[in-house]
Design a protein around this nucleic acid. Structure first.
Length: 729
DNA sequence: AGTGGGACGCTTTTT
DNA sequence: GCGTCCCACT
């Protein structure tokens, strides 16, 4: 029973056994953060300090929550019941259902997804007669979200603090948006935290109730918390002060969505008497990888000082490779070739990953892997519940659950087609506004008073009747059967059955899958909560496939071999990030590089290309300044355009705008970039070339930009020169 | 009301 | 280079 303690090193053990009072665990990459968190949880339960329902454990992602639940159960030897373990949002939703009336909602409120948030805001802006071209709704959405991240309600924004969006109207629009949300009995993601924090702050009785309930609080990934999350935690922790936050300031990569590293840097001030435990023994990566990562991150300022040391007692290991290539195609070929070689040597594909800065970069690798016939998976694509048919079906469920959900009703009122066009919809909206009633109720009165045209009236009337019947059936027959019936009787599944497009059968399958998933929930409401808060990709991670993902997406994962392509200034570090957030942006990019590098257990291969096709055109690039920041002793340079060690940009050109340093050609020259300009790239007769579809071949003749090529496998073709590249050798 | 084509614009992501 | 979004046409 206590062997969970014996498996810990001394510092981990301290983090687990310092149970009372505030504790900050600074857990560097690969130092056993999850193990500490789960052991601590189990330790609290096993030493009888608290019952399972007296511990509040908070994570950011559902995946992390699930993992913690499983691992706690493994230590206990049985699944723990009644845990308050989940994401910030899921826990807040659970609390808010109990106190909804305090913020003018009822406990069956719906949670809007991002799409609905935007549509609602658009409506609010249209009502304010704003030109949506000049003032894009997504921009305002972002402003409002940042306010919510900082726990700022509309009444707290002074004129001076108002953003200059639409001549200082942002505050008013925000207030109007919040009003609309309340009328629709809905909340957006930000509201879950905002409302709960507001409630805890203004209702001491409610706060006291939670102080009694939670004796211990555990927080994962503390460096990613935003202000409102911090306030929520601080309020809850005031009771027993037993709060333990685990995180790593060096892995803070989400400031752009409101996370504030300052929270973790300030912990000891926020929680006086806090014990600080540093986990520095890394059990994941080889010594060179750790040393390279340490050298890199040392270029950041204002961090908690900590040094990762290898916990494995072996100084061996491959150096970090830095490969310079002519263009992005050659880069993709290099990665593919190396993967093939590794596989030939018995390495599993699932132990290899390509980590990119931005999603679009995966494409080049996908294409290459297809030609090579290497199976791959792209992590972080479209999720199940983001598919159109699932969102439609969910909209039906939302109306069933909560008739005041206008956004959901609007989505399905004409799906399948019921002849409800712009005019009919406008009439409903007008009535809804005049009578201050939800859209469904407005539609009902219009039907009753013949306020709609014949066919539309009959169809809408029928739909409303049906909703009445389904709602009655909900209690009688249960939610699974009722939803299945609703999707059939409404004509929604029929619509896809009649659809002749190739995707239609797949969509029908997805709908069946969704109905099947309903069985796992005790009620429709529980299912809807799950869908909006918890549902995520449940891909089979077992299949032996190469992983393609962003560095953000790779946080928390590890692989034997990690490819880090596209380390070029402007791409990584991203120009936009530096333009928008200056020095802070660059530091965050550097932390991202640190995260990427430390995903590797055995080897990491960084690469950069002199020329890259971004969207339609080619762009010349210079190796990333981060390459210059890697300690020379830990890296090995190679590739057709092997980097001569570049000057460290941070010291040579501290944070200058791109235009400034590009204007200094000597920088490029000193790096011995190839003299060839992209524009003059031409092929001579006899040149060996490579084509994405046709493979390798020899140029037989040249006419302007058209080449006749005898391909080794695909015969002779006439091809425009930009479709081929010079063969690698 | 429904569809087709042109204009646009394009980090990162969770909930 | 591609997907989407909106508007204009039928």
């Amino acid at each position: 029973m206590t062997d969970y303690l014996s498996r810990l090193n001394p510092e981990q053990r301290e983090a687990v056994e310092t149970v009372d009072g505030p504790v900050l665990v600074l857990a560097g990459a690969g130092t056993g953060k999850t193990r500490v968190l789960t052991s601590r949880f189990a330790h609290i339960l096993l030493t009888k300090r608290a019952f399972p329902n007296q511990v509040l454990a908070v994570t950011f992602t559902n995946k992390a929550a699930r993992e913690m639940r499983e691992r706690v159960a493994a230590i206990l030897g049985h699944p723990a019941e009644g845990l308050w373990l989940g994401t910030f949002h899921a826990l807040c939703a659970r609390m808010l259902r109990r106190h909804a009336e305090l913020v003018g909602l009822t406990s069956n409120f719906n949670i809007l997804d991002t799409d609905d948030q935007l549509r609602l805001l658009k409506q609010v802006m249209e009502a304010a007669r704003l030109d949506l071209k000049r003032f894009p709704p997504p921009a305002l959405m972002a402003i409002i979200q940042r306010w919510k991240d900082r726990a700022i309600t509309p009444d707290k924004i002074t004129v001076a603090e108002d953003s200059d969006f639409a001549n200082g109207q942002a505050r008013t629009l925000y207030a109007a948006y919040q009003e609309r949300l309340k009328t629709l009995n809905t909340v957006d993601f930000g509201d879950l935290l905002l409302h709960m924090t507001e409630i805890l702050r203004t209702h001491p009785d409610v706060l006291a109730q939670y102080h009694r309930a939670f004796r211990y609080i555990l927080v994962d990934e503390y460096q990613d918390t935003n202000l409102v999350q911090y306030l929520w935690l601080r309020l809850l922790a005031q009771g027993h002060k037993n709060i333990c936050c685990v995180g790593d300031d060096d892995q803070s990569i989400y400031s752009w969505r409101g996370a504030e590293v300052e929270n973790i840097l300030r912990f000891e001030k926020d929680f006086p008497g806090a014990v600080l435990v540093k986990l520095e023994a890394n059990y994941r990566s080889t010594a060179p990888i750790l040393a390279a990562a340490a050298g890199l991150i040392a270029h950041n300022s204002g961090r908690h000082d900590k040094t990762l040391r290898s916990g494995k007692n072996d100084a061996s290991g491959e150096k970090v490779q830095v490969i310079g290539l002519w263009d992005s195609d050659e880069e993709a070929r290099m990665v593919g070739d190396r993967m093939e070689n590794l596989r030939r040597d018995g390495h599993k594909l699932s132990e290899m990953a390509v980590l990119v800065r931005a999603g679009f970069q995966t494409r080049a690798f996908e294409e290459r892997l297809i030609t090579l016939g290497l199976p791959y998976r792209v992590v972080g694509g479209l999720r199940f519940y983001e598919r159109a048919e699932i969102r439609d079906a969910i909209a039906y469920c939302r109306v069933l659950n909560q008739p005041a959900d206008d956004l959901a009703f609007e989505r399905i009122v004409n799906l399948p087609r019921r002849g409800v066009g712009e005019q009919a919809l406008r009439a409903m909206h007008e009535r809804s506004r005049e009578a201050q009633i939800p859209l469904t109720a407005a539609a009902a009165t219009l039907v009753a008073e013949s306020g709609l045209r014949g066919k539309v009236r009959a169809e809408v009337g029928n739909l409303l009747d049906q909703f009445g019947q389904w709602r009655a059936a909900l209690d009688r027959d249960g939610h699974v059967e009722t939803v299945a019936r609703m999707l059939d009787e409404s004509g929604y599944t029929g619509m896809w059955k009649a659809d002749k497009s190739p995707e239609a059968p797949g969509r029908l399958d997805n709908l069946k899958e969704m109905v099947r998933a309903l069985v796992d929930y005790e009620s429709l409401g529980a299912f809807l909560d799950h869908v909006s808060l918890v549902m995520d990709n449940e891909e089979n991670a077992d299949a032996d496939k190469v992983n393609l993902m962003t560095m953000h997406g790779a946080k928390g994962l590890e692989f034997d071999t990690v490819f880090l392509p596209g380390w070029e200034d402007g791409l990584f570090p991203s120009q936009r990030s530096m333009d928008e957030s200056g020095g802070k942006g660059l530091e965050e990019e550097r932390r991202l590089a640190y995260v990427g590098l430390t995903r590797a257990r055995k080897r990491s291969i960084i690469s950069h290309a002199a020329n890259r096709r971004i969207y339609a055109n080619w762009q010349s690039n210079v190796p990333s300044r981060f390459i210059g920041e890697l300690p020379e002793t830990e890296i090995e340079v190679g590739g057709s355009q092997a980097t001569k060690r570049p000057p460290s940009f941070t010291t040579a050109f501290p944070l200058v705008a791109r235009s400034t340093y590009v204007a200094q050609p000597r920088v490029v020259a000193s790096w011995e970039q190839p003299a060839r300009a992209v524009a003059t790239k031409k092929y001579a007769q006899g040149a060996r070339v490579f084509h994405d579809k046709f493979g390798y071949g020899t140029v037989t003749s040249v006419e302007d930009d058209k080449l006749n090529i005898a391909f080794d496998k695909a015969g002779t073709k006439r091809v425009i020169d930009r479709f081929v590249t010079e063969a690698a050798q």
